[in-house]
Simulated scan of single mutants.
Amino acid sequence: MSSLVLGASRLGSGDLDAAVATADAMLLSGHLIDTSRNYADGASERALGMALAALPSPQRADAASRVITKVDADPDTGALDAARVFRSVEESLAALGVERVPLLHLHDPYTVTADEALSRGGAVDALLRLRDEGVAAAIGIAAGPLPLVGRYVDSGAFDAVLSHNRFTLIDSGAADLFDDARSRGMTVFNAAPFGGDLLARGPRPGARYAYRPIDEALAAWTSALFRVCEAHDVPAASVALRFSTRSPLVDHTVVGVSGAARLVELQALDREHIPEALWAELDELGPAPSPFDGRRDA
Protein backbone atom coordinates (compact mmCIF):
# COMPACT_ATOMS: atom_id res chain seq x y z
CA MET A 1 0.00 0.00 0.00
CA SER A 2 1.26 3.46 -0.83
CA SER A 3 1.65 5.85 2.07
CA LEU A 4 -0.77 8.68 2.73
CA VAL A 5 0.45 12.26 2.71
CA LEU A 6 -1.50 14.81 4.72
CA GLY A 7 -2.28 17.92 2.72
CA ALA A 8 -2.14 21.18 4.67
CA SER A 9 -3.60 23.59 2.13
CA ARG A 10 -6.40 24.68 4.51
CA LEU A 11 -4.34 24.59 7.69
CA GLY A 12 -4.29 28.03 9.32
CA SER A 13 -7.19 29.43 7.32
CA GLY A 14 -9.30 29.69 10.49
CA ASP A 15 -8.56 29.91 14.21
CA LEU A 16 -4.81 29.78 14.84
CA ASP A 17 -5.02 27.75 18.07
CA ALA A 18 -7.15 25.15 16.31
CA ALA A 19 -4.70 25.12 13.41
CA VAL A 20 -1.74 24.49 15.71
CA ALA A 21 -3.63 21.65 17.42
CA THR A 22 -4.36 20.10 14.03
CA ALA A 23 -0.74 20.58 13.01
CA ASP A 24 0.37 18.80 16.18
CA ALA A 25 -1.86 15.82 15.37
CA MET A 26 -0.53 15.73 11.81
CA LEU A 27 3.09 15.86 12.96
CA LEU A 28 2.58 13.05 15.46
CA SER A 29 0.72 10.83 12.96
CA GLY A 30 3.90 9.54 11.31
CA HIS A 31 2.68 10.61 7.86
CA LEU A 32 4.41 12.93 5.43
CA ILE A 33 2.88 16.41 5.42
CA ASP A 34 2.46 18.52 2.29
CA THR A 35 2.41 22.29 2.72
CA SER A 36 3.35 25.38 0.69
CA ARG A 37 4.60 28.92 1.14
CA ASN A 38 1.30 30.28 -0.16
CA TYR A 39 -1.17 27.99 1.62
CA ALA A 40 -3.48 30.13 3.77
CA ASP A 41 -1.23 33.11 3.01
CA GLY A 42 1.65 31.48 4.85
CA ALA A 43 -0.40 30.46 7.90
CA SER A 44 -0.12 26.75 7.05
CA GLU A 45 3.66 26.81 7.46
CA ARG A 46 3.42 29.05 10.53
CA ALA A 47 1.02 26.65 12.28
CA LEU A 48 3.29 23.71 11.50
CA GLY A 49 6.29 25.68 12.73
CA MET A 50 4.57 26.54 16.00
CA ALA A 51 3.59 22.90 16.52
CA LEU A 52 7.11 21.74 15.71
CA ALA A 53 8.62 24.20 18.17
CA ALA A 54 6.45 22.82 20.99
CA LEU A 55 7.65 19.23 20.47
CA PRO A 56 10.50 17.73 22.53
CA SER A 57 13.78 17.70 20.63
CA PRO A 58 13.85 14.04 19.44
CA GLN A 59 10.22 14.19 18.31
CA ARG A 60 10.77 17.56 16.66
CA ALA A 61 13.62 16.28 14.49
CA ASP A 62 11.60 13.25 13.37
CA ALA A 63 8.49 15.29 12.65
CA ALA A 64 10.42 17.98 10.78
CA SER A 65 11.94 15.32 8.52
CA ARG A 66 8.44 14.56 7.22
CA VAL A 67 7.38 18.10 6.25
CA ILE A 68 7.44 18.77 2.51
CA THR A 69 6.98 22.31 1.21
CA LYS A 70 7.01 24.22 -2.06
CA VAL A 71 8.35 27.37 -3.65
CA ASP A 72 5.63 29.62 -5.03
CA ALA A 73 5.44 32.63 -7.29
CA ASP A 74 5.43 35.98 -5.54
CA PRO A 75 1.77 36.52 -4.53
CA ASP A 76 1.90 40.22 -5.51
CA THR A 77 4.04 40.32 -8.66
CA GLY A 78 3.82 36.74 -9.94
CA ALA A 79 7.60 36.57 -10.18
CA LEU A 80 9.01 33.04 -10.19
CA ASP A 81 12.65 33.54 -11.04
CA ALA A 82 15.75 32.35 -9.18
CA ALA A 83 15.59 35.26 -6.75
CA ARG A 84 11.99 34.40 -5.87
CA VAL A 85 12.90 30.73 -5.36
CA PHE A 86 15.59 31.65 -2.85
CA ARG A 87 13.30 34.14 -1.11
CA SER A 88 10.41 31.67 -0.97
CA VAL A 89 12.65 29.03 0.60
CA GLU A 90 13.98 31.48 3.17
CA GLU A 91 10.42 32.36 4.14
CA SER A 92 9.45 28.69 4.42
CA LEU A 93 12.45 27.71 6.54
CA ALA A 94 11.84 30.65 8.87
CA ALA A 95 8.13 29.86 9.25
CA LEU A 96 8.76 26.15 9.84
CA GLY A 97 11.75 26.76 12.11
CA VAL A 98 13.95 24.28 10.21
CA GLU A 99 17.22 24.44 8.29
CA ARG A 100 16.35 21.97 5.53
CA VAL A 101 13.44 20.03 4.06
CA PRO A 102 13.27 16.50 2.65
CA LEU A 103 11.56 17.61 -0.55
CA LEU A 104 11.00 21.00 -2.15
CA HIS A 105 8.52 21.32 -5.01
CA LEU A 106 8.32 23.96 -7.69
CA HIS A 107 4.64 24.77 -7.22
CA ASP A 108 2.15 25.78 -9.91
CA PRO A 109 4.62 27.54 -12.21
CA TYR A 110 1.88 29.26 -14.20
CA THR A 111 3.31 32.79 -14.25
CA VAL A 112 6.41 31.76 -16.23
CA THR A 113 6.87 29.53 -19.23
CA ALA A 114 8.62 26.20 -18.84
CA ASP A 115 11.37 27.53 -21.12
CA GLU A 116 11.93 30.46 -18.76
CA ALA A 117 11.94 28.31 -15.64
CA LEU A 118 14.30 25.76 -17.19
CA SER A 119 16.66 28.32 -18.71
CA ARG A 120 20.15 28.89 -17.37
CA GLY A 121 19.94 30.89 -14.15
CA GLY A 122 16.18 30.33 -13.90
CA ALA A 123 13.95 28.88 -11.18
CA VAL A 124 15.00 25.28 -11.78
CA ASP A 125 18.69 26.14 -11.59
CA ALA A 126 17.97 27.75 -8.21
CA LEU A 127 16.27 24.56 -7.04
CA LEU A 128 19.21 22.47 -8.21
CA ARG A 129 21.54 24.72 -6.23
CA LEU A 130 19.40 24.33 -3.12
CA ARG A 131 19.55 20.55 -3.54
CA ASP A 132 23.32 20.65 -4.03
CA GLU A 133 23.70 22.75 -0.88
CA GLY A 134 21.57 20.32 1.16
CA VAL A 135 18.76 22.79 1.85
CA ALA A 136 16.46 20.32 0.09
CA ALA A 137 17.28 16.62 -0.03
CA ALA A 138 15.22 16.34 -3.23
CA ILE A 139 13.30 18.61 -5.61
CA GLY A 140 9.97 18.09 -7.37
CA ILE A 141 7.49 19.62 -9.76
CA ALA A 142 3.93 20.05 -8.45
CA ALA A 143 1.12 21.25 -10.71
CA GLY A 144 -2.08 20.12 -12.38
CA PRO A 145 -2.03 20.33 -16.19
CA LEU A 146 -0.33 17.27 -17.59
CA PRO A 147 1.41 18.77 -20.65
CA LEU A 148 3.02 21.39 -18.41
CA VAL A 149 4.08 18.88 -15.78
CA GLY A 150 5.42 16.66 -18.54
CA ARG A 151 7.79 19.41 -19.72
CA TYR A 152 9.43 19.50 -16.31
CA VAL A 153 9.54 15.71 -16.01
CA ASP A 154 11.21 15.52 -19.42
CA SER A 155 13.95 17.91 -18.24
CA GLY A 156 15.43 15.19 -16.04
CA ALA A 157 16.11 17.75 -13.31
CA PHE A 158 13.57 16.55 -10.75
CA ASP A 159 13.41 13.77 -8.20
CA ALA A 160 9.63 13.83 -7.72
CA VAL A 161 6.39 14.77 -9.44
CA LEU A 162 2.99 15.72 -8.04
CA SER A 163 -0.19 16.18 -10.02
CA HIS A 164 -3.72 16.65 -8.70
CA ASN A 165 -7.20 15.60 -9.88
CA ARG A 166 -5.69 13.70 -12.83
CA PHE A 167 -5.61 10.16 -11.44
CA THR A 168 -8.94 9.18 -9.91
CA LEU A 169 -11.80 6.75 -10.40
CA ILE A 170 -13.22 9.28 -12.85
CA ASP A 171 -10.19 10.31 -14.88
CA SER A 172 -6.85 8.48 -14.95
CA GLY A 173 -5.25 10.74 -17.54
CA ALA A 174 -2.05 11.06 -15.49
CA ALA A 175 -1.28 7.33 -15.85
CA ASP A 176 1.16 7.80 -18.74
CA LEU A 177 2.90 10.71 -17.02
CA PHE A 178 3.25 8.78 -13.76
CA ASP A 179 4.52 5.72 -15.61
CA ASP A 180 7.12 7.84 -17.40
CA ALA A 181 8.18 9.49 -14.14
CA ARG A 182 8.61 6.15 -12.38
CA SER A 183 10.69 4.84 -15.29
CA ARG A 184 13.03 7.77 -14.63
CA GLY A 185 13.33 6.84 -10.97
CA MET A 186 11.13 9.73 -9.79
CA THR A 187 8.84 9.53 -6.78
CA VAL A 188 5.16 10.00 -7.73
CA PHE A 189 2.69 11.93 -5.60
CA ASN A 190 -0.99 11.74 -6.58
CA ALA A 191 -3.06 14.49 -5.00
CA ALA A 192 -6.84 14.94 -4.70
CA PRO A 193 -8.01 11.33 -5.25
CA PHE A 194 -11.58 12.48 -4.47
CA GLY A 195 -11.53 15.00 -7.33
CA GLY A 196 -12.42 17.69 -4.81
CA ASP A 197 -15.14 15.93 -2.87
CA LEU A 198 -17.40 14.44 -5.55
CA LEU A 199 -16.05 10.94 -4.90
CA ALA A 200 -16.40 11.41 -1.16
CA ARG A 201 -19.83 13.04 -0.93
CA GLY A 202 -21.44 12.03 -4.18
CA PRO A 203 -23.47 13.98 -6.76
CA ARG A 204 -25.64 16.75 -5.35
CA PRO A 205 -26.75 20.25 -6.38
CA GLY A 206 -23.68 22.32 -7.13
CA ALA A 207 -21.31 19.34 -7.05
CA ARG A 208 -17.99 19.85 -8.79
CA TYR A 209 -15.18 17.62 -9.97
CA ALA A 210 -11.66 19.03 -10.27
CA TYR A 211 -13.07 22.55 -9.74
CA ARG A 212 -15.53 22.11 -12.62
CA PRO A 213 -19.32 21.71 -12.52
CA ILE A 214 -20.47 18.18 -13.27
CA ASP A 215 -23.01 17.38 -15.97
CA GLU A 216 -25.93 14.94 -15.84
CA ALA A 217 -23.89 12.10 -17.34
CA LEU A 218 -21.18 12.33 -14.66
CA ALA A 219 -23.80 12.71 -11.94
CA ALA A 220 -25.50 9.53 -13.14
CA TRP A 221 -22.20 7.62 -13.33
CA THR A 222 -21.21 8.74 -9.84
CA SER A 223 -24.62 7.75 -8.48
CA ALA A 224 -24.10 4.27 -9.93
CA LEU A 225 -20.67 4.14 -8.29
CA PHE A 226 -22.18 5.00 -4.92
CA ARG A 227 -24.86 2.32 -5.34
CA VAL A 228 -22.19 -0.33 -5.94
CA CYS A 229 -20.29 0.80 -2.86
CA GLU A 230 -23.44 0.84 -0.72
CA ALA A 231 -24.31 -2.69 -1.86
CA HIS A 232 -20.96 -3.84 -0.45
CA ASP A 233 -21.27 -1.64 2.64
CA VAL A 234 -18.06 0.18 1.77
CA PRO A 235 -17.71 3.99 1.78
CA ALA A 236 -17.20 5.34 -1.72
CA ALA A 237 -14.47 7.57 -0.28
CA SER A 238 -12.50 4.46 0.73
CA VAL A 239 -12.76 3.09 -2.79
CA ALA A 240 -11.65 6.40 -4.31
CA LEU A 241 -8.72 6.53 -1.92
CA ARG A 242 -7.75 2.90 -2.53
CA PHE A 243 -7.80 3.46 -6.29
CA SER A 244 -4.74 5.65 -5.74
CA THR A 245 -3.00 3.87 -2.88
CA ARG A 246 -3.19 0.45 -4.59
CA SER A 247 -1.83 1.69 -7.90
CA PRO A 248 1.71 0.62 -8.81
CA LEU A 249 2.10 4.02 -10.49
CA VAL A 250 1.70 5.96 -7.22
CA ASP A 251 4.16 6.18 -4.34
CA HIS A 252 2.25 8.66 -2.17
CA THR A 253 -1.37 9.84 -2.13
CA VAL A 254 -2.00 13.39 -0.90
CA VAL A 255 -5.32 14.11 0.83
CA GLY A 256 -6.26 17.37 2.50
CA VAL A 257 -6.73 17.44 6.28
CA SER A 258 -8.77 20.28 7.73
CA GLY A 259 -8.85 19.15 11.36
CA ALA A 260 -7.85 16.42 13.78
CA ALA A 261 -11.21 14.68 13.29
CA ARG A 262 -10.61 14.58 9.54
CA LEU A 263 -7.26 12.90 10.14
CA VAL A 264 -8.93 10.13 12.16
CA GLU A 265 -11.59 9.74 9.45
CA LEU A 266 -8.96 9.54 6.72
CA GLN A 267 -7.01 6.84 8.55
CA ALA A 268 -10.21 4.83 8.97
CA LEU A 269 -10.99 5.16 5.25
CA ASP A 270 -7.51 3.90 4.45
CA ARG A 271 -8.00 0.79 6.63
CA GLU A 272 -11.37 -0.17 5.13
CA HIS A 273 -11.58 -3.67 3.64
CA ILE A 274 -12.66 -3.57 0.00
CA PRO A 275 -13.71 -6.87 -1.60
CA GLU A 276 -12.35 -7.72 -5.04
CA ALA A 277 -15.90 -8.21 -6.30
CA LEU A 278 -16.53 -4.49 -5.86
CA TRP A 279 -13.74 -3.59 -8.31
CA ALA A 280 -15.20 -5.98 -10.87
CA GLU A 281 -18.61 -4.32 -10.56
CA LEU A 282 -17.06 -0.89 -10.99
CA ASP A 283 -15.40 -2.07 -14.19
CA GLU A 284 -18.85 -2.97 -15.49
CA LEU A 285 -19.91 0.69 -15.17
CA GLY A 286 -17.57 1.56 -18.01
CA PRO A 287 -15.44 4.72 -18.27
CA ALA A 288 -16.69 7.75 -16.40
CA PRO A 289 -17.70 10.79 -18.49
CA SER A 290 -14.99 13.05 -17.12
CA PRO A 291 -15.57 16.83 -17.45
CA PHE A 292 -12.13 16.98 -19.01
CA ASP A 293 -9.83 14.49 -20.67
CA GLY A 294 -6.79 14.48 -18.42
CA ARG A 295 -4.58 13.29 -21.27
CA ARG A 296 -5.18 16.52 -23.17
CA ASP A 297 -5.84 19.07 -20.46
CA ALA A 298 -4.06 22.40 -20.76
Rank of each mutant, 00 (worst) to 15 (best):
H232T: 01
A181K: 04
G286P: 10
L16N: 05
A51G: 06
G14H: 08
A94M: 02
Y152H: 08
L93H: 03
G294H: 07
G30W: 14
P56Q: 13
I141H: 07
P275M: 07
A8C: 12
E272M: 14
K70N: 10
A117Y: 05
S163E: 07
G14D: 15
V71K: 11
A217W: 14
D176C: 00
A61V: 15
I170C: 12
E284F: 04
T77W: 06
A236D: 04
T35S: 14
A298H: 02
V124G: 10
L162M: 10
S119F: 02
L218F: 12
S155F: 12
S36R: 04
S29W: 14
L162I: 01
G42S: 05
E276D: 11
G173N: 08
A138M: 14
G7S: 11
A142P: 05
I141E: 11
P235G: 03
A143M: 14
L55Q: 09
D293V: 03
H252Y: 14
L269N: 09
A157F: 10
R227W: 03
S247D: 15
A95D: 09
F167W: 09
A21C: 09
P205W: 01
V124E: 13
H273A: 15
L93V: 00
P289Q: 04
D34V: 00
R271A: 15
T245I: 09
V5A: 05
A136V: 04
L128D: 12
G42H: 06
V254Y: 09
G294P: 03
I274W: 02
L118D: 01
P75F: 00
D17A: 13
P109E: 05
T168W: 00
T113L: 05
A138D: 14
V153F: 07
S57I: 03
A117I: 04
D197C: 13
L225A: 14
E90D: 13
L48Q: 01
E276W: 01
L28T: 13
D159F: 04
A8V: 01
E230W: 02
A63M: 05
F158K: 08
S238L: 01
P109T: 06
E281S: 11
G150S: 15
A236K: 01
P203K: 12
V257N: 10
A236S: 10
I68V: 12
A298K: 02
G196I: 05
M50H: 13
H31R: 03
A64P: 03
R182P: 12
D180Y: 11
G185E: 00
D176Q: 10
F226D: 13
R166P: 03
P193K: 07
D297C: 08
E91N: 00
V257C: 15
R201V: 04
L146D: 07
L52I: 05
P145T: 03
F226L: 08
V153C: 05
R129K: 14
G12L: 08
A181E: 01
D293S: 12
D34Q: 02
R212T: 09
P275F: 07
F194R: 08
S247L: 08
S247C: 06
R271W: 11
A94D: 06
R131F: 10
S258K: 12
H232F: 09
P203R: 14
